[in-house]
Design a protein around this nucleic acid. Structure first.
Length: 916
DNA sequence: CTGTTAACGTA
DNA sequence: CGTACGTTAACAGG
């Protein structure tokens, strides 16, 4: 990572009158001026980089700015100009467009993502102290021509950067054109020779040639039938366009006639493509001397644009080290590998009382889990490493005591550290920050919270990841560098933690961190280590059953069409269904027509084709078989499955589960539920207990909206959907039909996801008008819900974020997007996030309560799984009643809402049996 | 070998 | 044109 060392100052000798002390022009060198066509290069950059990959949190696209800046830095590095200037067109009419209204007409509309990027480029130029010029009524090309003429007259070298071929007329011995071929990296210089090779005329005749041939980019038609070769032949014969005009009647052949017929166009073209070389410019060439950038302005602007690699490149180019975070030096402390308890004690004693230390745990794969092999303890100024492989008992005891103590610690990925230490019998206490969690709370929709990334984004400091668990072969030699990496990670975590503390406080998220997420990490670590028992026999049976069903369906499907086909390939299926069998087309997707389950079902109902029935049976069986196979592969040596929960993946605050995902085990169909039968109670335990919240999202909706009707329904313990149905349809509760109930149910849940009338009509297979009426009737009766939903989006637009009941935020910059699709998605997200996120808060709180009560009551029962609104526990013999009671109590008390939180509990020998 | 798409499982 | 996830096979590109 970068440190505080500053490089030696560069030699700075001014050779031009206006060159300031910052200019880096070596004495006696010919000045070299880079003249850039701003718009042309911005467009090149825009089309070379995908806009979706370059945007700030506020939704401003920056791909053109990024590409332009990158290209500029590359050219400064390669060409080493002493002077740089950028010319821009204005939106106002020019003398050309006034004379010929079709000038540059027919061009595509400027893409929306391009808006604002020219202004940003100009700001970047200001920060870099590079002058920009634009003149009302004139084009950048004229400015460029004037500048290059002035530069040449002063005896300078000039490099014109433009994607416009008109610039070729400027080429001389002293003036070269850098013409980008494609993208922003391939920009070969064009000299006179290159122009002659390509167009068969010298640069000073290029405009003549272009007038004859025409220029599609400028919407200037040329002489039909005349290309560069013919034009060049004539120019060679008659010397110039004027020469051609004088002899126009003696030019024979069809092209000669064509020329005479279009002579007006040619004259006009020549007048328009002639560049002005004698404009009055607001900037003299001597004012364009390249200076060191305005450091502060660059920092501020690049922060806003989130240009971190460019910032580094820029400062590297100008021979300056990047400013450290806060001006302080960032220096990873040297470390000492302690070999005895006394040395560790000395280091621990040297720390100020209550001083924060980082802990980084090095681990290696041991069986299925990771086991700690070394621990780095890092403070700002010093660090030690304890190698658990060589530590004696006394040292390990001393380390264990400190690790489990209340001494404040910061960790990156606390849960992983806990697990690795736990495997070795060590505990970790006093953790006040996990930077992977605090980073998440600050910005919950990042893709990753890896240390190098957080460092780059928040500290603007780059460091290479050492590969925490990369040391597959521990040859001893690697020890030192792995230790150094651990110390570095600890140091970065320490800096990040300091950086995050005020940000968390400002967001009111510090309580969420220390009161919820950190303690939850410890609970999750234990759940992951415990895992859930698997019945190998049932698993084997299921696998063979599903395999048989899959094969049978496949055979039958082949028989139905008379040949084989890969049923798993949507592409091949499309061919069979829509071409071979000529079935009606389904919904369009990118690659043709969908073959998803809903469409197949509709097709089957319409046509009754046997192939469809078998295909659907095959889909179901193969999906289940594949899932069972995955589960089988993830059974550990202890006969159990240990999922991993991700605490910082779902932007709403939910957990996610992977390796394997135990949050998507089937439950809706009879066959699918058989998969739940393989998850069984462990030997020595009495049963599994499944406890889930009843309609938690609707209850949260009732609470947040304060809608009197909904609250009353829940208070009276009514069937919510029946109650709502009776009011929406104006019938007595007992007269609500099941069709009415399911309509209302779909709508109630849909509202929490930002459902539109269109979507509702689709789902209920009714017309949009009917759906709209349904929504209206719903809102007429439950106005609180409508007001709440409306208010959520409005408030989020004002604040820039939504909040859950525990104050967990989600930032939604796209609410301000001009892209309707993006904006409306953000609106739906704004509707859903407080509800889904609050439900996540509640069950997390409940998990802490259940865990605490199990410990307080010294029970042996344990929590195994969480599935968003459901907890699975394993019950120790004799503890069922006690655990059932405490689970209901803790889950019910996890939040104080305006409606009761109802919990349903089931027990059984398998997960399926415990379900209800 | 990598990334993307379609499909589908859960809440 | 209803949110949040993870996993898989097939496929396309390098």
């Amino acid at each position: 990572m970068s440190d505080s060392a500053k490089t030696a100052p560069q030699t700075t000798v001014a050779t031009t009158p206006n060159a300031g002390p910052d200019s880096g022009i070596p004495d006696g060198q010919t000045p070299r001026m880079l003249v850039i066509d701003g718009h042309s290069m911005a467009f090149r950059a825009f089309y070379a980089l995908p806009p979706e990959n370059f945007a700030t949190d506020t939704g401003q696209h920056t791909n053109a700015v990024h590409g332009f800046t990158s290209m500029l830095l590359t050219m400064i590095r390669q060409q080493r100009p002493t002077h740089v200037v950028v010319a821009f067109d204005l939106d106002t009419p020019t003398f050309r467009s006034l004379e010929y209204t079709e000038y540059k007409g027919g061009r595509n509309k400027t893409p929306e993502e391009f808006y604002g990027q020219i202004d940003l480029i100009i700001k970047v130029m200001e920060a870099m102290r590079i002058p920009t010029i634009s003149v009302d009524g004139f084009e950048a090309d004229d400015i460029i021509a004037t500048l290059s003429t002035q530069g040449e007259a002063a005896g300078w070298d000039v490099l014109v950067v433009s994607g416009d071929r008109d610039a070729f007329q400027l080429i001389t011995d002293k003036v070269l054109v850098l013409y980008p071929k494609k993208g922003i990296s391939d920009i070969p210089p064009m000299d006179a020779e290159a122009v002659e090779t390509k167009y068969f005329v010298p640069p000073n005749r290029y405009s003549d040639l272009a007038a004859l041939v025409g220029e599609t980019a400028d919407n200037l038609p040329g002489v039909p039938g005349v290309g560069p070769k013919t034009a060049a032949k004539w120019l060679k014969q008659y010397g110039s366009l004027d020469g051609i005009m004088e002899n126009i009647d003696s030019i024979g052949g069809k092209v000669g006639e064509s020329l005479r017929a279009h002579v007006d166009d040619v004259v006009r073209n020549r007048r328009l493509n002639h560049l002005l070389r004698d404009m009055e410019l607001p900037v003299a060439i001597n004012d364009t001397v390249l200076q060191a950038p305005d450091r502060e302005a660059v920092e501020e602007l690049f922060d806003a644009l989130q240009f971190n690699t460019l910032r580094k490149r820029l400062f590297d180019l100008f021979g300056e080290e990047e400013a450290a975070d806060d001006g302080e030096g960032h220096e990873v402390p040297a470390h000492q590998v302690v070999s005895d308890a006394a040395a560790l004690g000395a280091w621990l004693g040297a720390g100020a009382n209550g001083e924060l230390a980082a802990v980084d745990v090095l681990s290696e794969k041991a069986g299925l889990a990771h086991e700690a092999v070394a621990v780095a303890l890092v403070r700002k100024e010093s660090a030690v490493v304890v190698d658990l492989g060589t530590a004696d008992a006394e040292l390990e005891t001393a380390l264990a005591a400190w690790l489990s103590s209340d001494a404040p610690k910061v960790v990156h990925e606390y849960k992983e550290a806990l697990k690795a230490l736990s495997v070795r019998g060590l505990d970790l206490g006093g953790v006040v920050d996990d930077t992977s969690l605090s980073g998440y709370l600050i910005q919950p929709d990042r893709r990753s919270y890896e240390l190098p990334e957080l460092s780059q984004v928040h500290l603007k400091v780059t460091f290479e990841a050492g590969g925490k668990d990369s040391g597959q072969l521990d040859l001893g030699l690697e020890g030192d560098s792995r230790f150094a990496d651990a110390v570095q990670r600890g140091y970065v975590a320490l800096l990040l933690s300091e950086h995050f503390a005020p940000m968390l406080a400002e967001r009111g998220a510090d309580g969420l961190l220390t009161g919820l997420e950190l303690p939850l990490a410890a609970v999750l670590a234990q759940m992951e280590l415990t895992g859930i028992d698997i019945s190998q026999e049932r698993l084997a049976t299921l696998l063979s059953d599903f395999t048989a069903a899959m094969n049978a369906a496949q055979e039958a499907a082949f028989a139905a069409i008379g040949h084989e086909v890969n049923l798993g390939s949507p592409k091949q299926l499309q061919e069979v269904l829509f071409e071979e069998l000529g079935l009606p087309k389904t919904k369009k997707i990118k690659t043709g027509y969908t073959t998803d389950a809903a469409s197949l079902k509709a097709l089957l109902e319409k046509t009754g084709h046997e192939f469809l029935a078998q295909l659907m049976a095959h889909r179901e069986a193969s999906k289940l078989k594949q899932m069972v196979e995955t589960l089988k592969k993830s059974v550990a040596d202890d006969g159990r499955i240990h999922t991993t929960y991700a605490q910082n993946v779902a932007a709403t605050g939910r957990l996610s589960s992977n390796n394997p995902n135990l949050q998507n085990i089937p439950v809706r169909t009879e066959e699918g539920r058989r998969v739940r039968d393989i998850f069984v109670v462990s030997e020595g335990y009495e049963c599994l207990l499944a406890a889930d919240y009843s309609q938690i999202e609707m209850r949260i909706m009732a609470h947040l909206s304060g809608d009197a009707g909904l609250i009353q329904a829940y208070a009276e313990g009514e069937d919510l959907h029946r109650y709502v149905g009776s009011h929406v349809f104006g019938v007595a509760p007992e007269d609500v039909t099941s069709a009415m109930r399911s309509k209302v149910k779909a709508m109630s849940y849909g509202l929490a996801y930002g459902l539109t009338s269109f979507g509702l009509s689709k789902q209920l297979e009714i017309s949009v008008d009917e759906a709209r009426t349904l929504v209206k009737d719903y809102f007429d009766r439950f106005g609180g819900v409508r007001d709440y939903l409306r208010g959520v989006v409005e408030q989020a637009r004002i604040d820039g974020y939504t909040s859950t009941i525990e104050g967990r935020r989600r930032y939604l910059p796209d609410l301000a997007s001009t892209d309707r699709q993006l904006r409306e998605l953000a609106e739906r997200v704004a509707l859903n996030s407080p509800i889904q996120g609050s439900a996540a808060d509640i069950i997390k709180r409940a998990m802490l309560g259940v865990d605490a009560q199990l410990k307080a009551k010294e029970l042996n029962s344990r929590m195994l799984l969480q599935v968003h609104d459901e907890l699975i526990l394993e019950i120790w013999p004799g503890e069922l009643d006690a655990v059932k009671a405490l689970v209901i109590e803790q889950m019910g008390a996890a939040a104080q809402l305006q409606v009761p939180l109802e919990v349903q509990v089931g027990v059984g020998a398998s997960w399926n049996d415990a379900g209800h």
